[in-house]
């Protein structure tokens, strides 16, 4: 039973758990599955609805109107000089991308236990599927935001977009890493503790108010500012608005901090996910 004996075999199954190494090669072999899963998720959302894919736009639009009414008119909160619809829409859109990814990923094992219990494929396909779907939604919403943007521009509103606009894909990528990272970290725990699921949905709606979605960071009192900026999503949303509208808080240090946090969170998530994917089925 020397090492040479093992080399002839394609798969060796033993009690050992893999901890760190992540098998990207294996995942690439299943890229057709990822594509089909994405389609399955996308279709299942709007099958047999009247408005179909229009819902992807209607939801943030309705939130935007509500925020304009509640936070803009009743509470009279500022928007750093950005037109209210654009301010709220951009915030909701980015937040929804992060929150949806996180929530869907955190349910990976619980929602797919039927599938995972019957057939083997790299479990990481599902978090990727969820993230990509949320990303498609974000793209549609981004197009709508650009319509608003051009409309305001043509009506003589002077935005001063900055060169930081080219970093937009990076902002989105960061949100994806954060959402997936936290999501898959929690997914490993929800298999055992179902109460975490409630905590996730409730926690996310609370966390939204600790993130500058409906208010700019500039309206936060100085002594609380640092605390708010520790939230890794905060600098991303602020940088996004700064890039497109040229106003708001521009803090490169906080942004780099959030970039580091995103990568670290994602890597830790990947490790816990990997560690758990082999044994969860006996627990779930």
């Amino acid at each position: 039973m020397a090492a040479t004996d093992n080399e002839e075999w394609d798969v060796v199954i033993s009690a050992k758990r893999k901890r760190l190494g992540f098998d990207f090669k294996e995942l690439r072999q299943y890229k057709d599955l990822v594509k089909l899963m994405i389609r399955r998720e996308f279709v299942s959302v709007y099958k047999q609805t009247i408005f179909g894919p229009l819902w992807f736009v209607l939801q943030p639009l309705m939130s935007t109107f509500l925020y304009m009414f509640v936070f803009g008119n009743i509470a009279q909160m500022g928007t750093d000089g950005i037109p209210q619809p654009l301010f709220y829409f951009s915030g909701t859109m980015l937040w929804t991308f992060f929150a949806t990814t996180l929530q869907k990923c955190s349910d990976t094992f619980v929602n797919n236990s039927g599938l995972f219990g019957k057939v083997y494929f790299p479990r990481f396909t599902m978090p990727i599927t969820y993230m990509v779907n949320a990303f498609f939604t974000l793209c549609i919403q981004f197009a709508v935001m650009m319509i608003f943007y051009v409309y305001y521009f043509l009506n003589g509103f002077h935005f001063t977009p900055t060169w930081w606009i080219v970093a937009t894909p990076l902002y989105i990528f960061q949100l994806a890493l954060l959402g997936m990272g936290f999501g898959i970290m929690i997914s490993a725990l929800t298999t055992k503790y179902r109460d975490l699921r409630n905590l996730v949905s409730f926690g996310l709606s609370l966390l939204m108010y600790a993130t500058p979605v409906v208010y700019p960071i500039s309206s936060v009192p100085i002594k609380w500012k640092l605390l708010f900026q520790l939230n890794p999503v905060t600098p991303i949303i602020e940088m996004f608005r700064f890039s497109f509208f040229g106003s708001g808080n521009y803090d490169i240090k906080m942004w780099i901090y959030s970039l580091v946090v995103s990568v670290v969170v994602f890597l830790i998530g990947l490790m816990t996910f990997n560690h758990n994917e082999q044994t969860f089925i006996d627990v779930v």
Binding site: V11, V12, I13, A15, T279, I281, D282
Partner: peptide, 13 residues
């Protein structure tokens, strides 16, 4: 490969 064994190995070609 849905669950792991407690002891022993399986080798597959």
């Amino acid at each position: 490969q849905i669950t792991t064994p407690t002891k022993g190995t399986v080798k597959i070609r």
